[in-house]
C-alpha cells in the first residue's frame, strides 16, 4: 500500500488492519525532531565505521569513499556517534531554523 495522503476509508484497510508495505516507516521523517546535527571532520576520520554501529536510528551508512554519511531525514540528533567516535572527528552543530 503506497503512502496515502488522504485518510483511508474502512474499505481501504487491509485484512485485520495489517500494514502491507515493509519498512514504510521511511515516510516518517524523524529528522524533524533534531535540534542539532552531527558534522564530520573527514581530515580526522579514519573510516572505522564505529559511528554506524551505535546509531539507534540506523541512519548512518558508509559512502563510496568509505566515509560515514548521515541521512538527515531520520537523524534525531542524539549525538551517540559523537560520544562513540574515538578519533573525535564528529561534532554537533545547532540547526539554524
Amino acid at each position: 500500500m503506497p503512502k496515502q495522503d488522504a485518510a483511508p476509508k474502512w474499505q481501504d484497510l487491509a485484512l485485520g488492519c495489517a500494514t502491507l508495505e515493509p519498512g514504510s516507516s521511511k515516510y516518517q521523517k524523524t529528522g524533524d525532531w533534531r535540534s542539532s546535527r552531527p558534522v564530520w571532520n573527514f581530515d580526522q576520520c579514519v573510516k572505522c565505521g564505529v559511528c554506524t554501529v551505535f546509531c539507534p536510528e540506523g541512519c548512518l551508512s558508509i559512502d563510496a569513499k568509505g566515509y560515514p554519511q548521515v541521512d538527515l531525514d531520520y537523524c534525531k540528533g542524539c549525538a551517540i556517534c559523537v560520544t562513540e567516535c574515538w578519533t573525535g572527528c564528529i561534532s554537533m552543530e545547532e540547526e539554524k531554523d
Binding site: 519498512g23 514504510s24 516507516s25 521511511k26 515516510y27 516518517q28 521523517k29 524523524t30 525532531w33 579514519v46 573510516k47 572505522c48 565505521g49 564505529v50 554506524t52 554501529v53 551505535f54 546509531c55 539507534p56 536510528e57 540506523g58 541512519c59 551508512s61 558508509i62 541521512d71 531525514d73 531520520y74 534525531k76 540528533g77 542524539c78 549525538a79 551517540i80 574515538w86
Partner: peptide, 27 residues
C-alpha cells in the same frame, strides 16, 4: 577498530521508527 565494517549492512528495523532520541533499546 575496523571490524564494525564487517557487520551486515541490512537493517530489518528501519529508520523512521519513533523511539526517543538516544534510545539504546531501539539500537
Amino acid at each position: 577498530v575496523f571490524a564494525s565494517r564487517l557487520l551486515p549492512k541490512e537493517d530489518y528495523v528501519c529508520s523512521g521508527h519513533r523511539a526517543c532520541q538516544g534510545c539504546a533499546e531501539a539500537l
